[in-house]
Nucleic acid binder design. Sequence first.
DNA 1: GGAGTAATAT
DNA 2: AATATTACTC
Length: 575
Amino acid sequence: MVCTANDLQEWKDFPKGLRVLLLDGDTTSASQIRSKLEAMDYTVTAFCNENEALSAFSSNPESFHVAIIEVNANNGHWSFQFLETAKELPIIMTSNIHCLSTMMKCIALGAVEFLRKPLSEDKLRNIWQHVVHKAFNAGGSVISETLKPVKESLVSMVQPKQENEEQNCKISKETENVLRVHENDQEQSAGCDKYPAPSTPQLKQVSRLLDHGDCQDQINCLSEKESGEHDNETKSVETTCNNPIDEGNLLTREPHHMLRKTAVKKENVSGDGSKSEVNMSRHPDNIDSGKDNGGAAENLSKASVPNSSCKSNQKKMKVDWTSELHKKFVQAVEQLGVDQAIPSRILDLMKTEGLTRHNVASHLQKYRMHKRHILPKEEDRRLLQPHHTRDPIHQRSYYPYSHRPIMAFPPYHYTNPTLSMPPAYPMWGSQPPASSHPATVQMWGQPGYPHSQWQPSDQSWQYWNPYPGLQADAWGCPVMPPEQGGYSSYPQNTSGFQNAGGHAVENCHGYSMPQNSFDIHPAEEVVDKIVKEAMSKPWLPLPLGLKPPSTEGVLAELTRQGICNIPQINGSNTR
DNA sequence: GGAGTAATAT
DNA sequence: AATATTACTC
């Protein structure tokens, strides 16, 4: 069906030109879908008549890579028949109707997705993924010969990334093994950034569960948008519910296959191309039996009457803060800055459907708490710098990015950092030589404080550093965006002193402190450079080690320059 | 009613 | 351990 080897060799800009069979009895809807698809460079052949579509496919199955089939009240039987007929083709069902049993039946019969109308660009944009998915995941008996070249071609695209991505995606060894057994492992890479595929994580879960024989404990479902929390820009999310399903109600010609198909995930891409999805899971002990369908699709929850249970259950879904999601969170937080980084705004920025303000708030709380444990350690390191004094004037140095705050902190951290200081020197004393270790949270973290994913040693850590070129030793550690100019070359830059212990550390601008600058003094030229920079940019916070001039000195200087009228600020009195 | 925090539950 | 929920305060 899909494409020949030649097709793929020529297919430089996949998925452009991917051929879509579109059946929609509603001509208006059909033309809308068609124009959207064509705008995305898909090649669309539209039918409004079932028989035409079927005969077109039957006569030349290789004309199509993917099908979008509308299900309506009248053509249900035909739709199922088409699903049976075109098993090799990834078929996306779409409908205005919300009928759980129909959706279940479609999915069980092999439909890759069930989308509620209207089909937005976001819904349509990634339908190519189903082609890839099918190529990789269809069972040997189902995959067509023509799909194999697709798979091979894409494997070569996916493979080089795979090793890294496997780590980044935190795939458990167990899962990896399962996937290898299933010969579907390439797909998992597609579940990562580059070639996201709609069903990947869920498939992994389902595969694992199947292998462990407890698949009834978990199906994947799609949540509907959380009411009122998201605008139309928000994207569908994927939720994973630990819901038992009544398999007896599902049509299945091949139970394993059916379940795999049930693991349909809906994924959309936000404007910037990033995924906007969230994995959610429910605690098994919260399961309602029977009618709990878990909202097997976005549409389901709205569609089916019993879905009230799904909706209510959604409350109990647990957000899986994947590195990807967390990255988004951090980006939102950083984009907002200290003043604006509040749950609702973060939520808005993240544009991740299924995520609630509460989810964000909870995560934010944890985020802040973690930072709270991290920052004092950084301050400790700064405090060891020569010339540094802890008089209040220098307190702004504790939070050197106040002009563009990265994150909100509890006030006591920058109003009186000394109060929150854990014992500093013992920590220093216990440091391993910086030459053998880049500084990590592990080195600085308080004993007993939870580590795991909060640490850079974690594989997902790299996702959490918004500026991979820079070191960040803490979760969300403020690091200077590269575009922020010379400011970051100040030695107090958080990322600039990762390697405590008197070794040269490059900050993000390649500015390098001399060896032993920590132990003794910065080289004079370094000091000069810092002083010059500070003087040329008085609006920036002072680097550590530099004292601001006294008020008297400033006034005297102003007077010398003939400036005698100084407006009163904050009650400070001048002449 | 949202936000922040701490405590507690799951 | 991670996340959600709750209670409380602002």
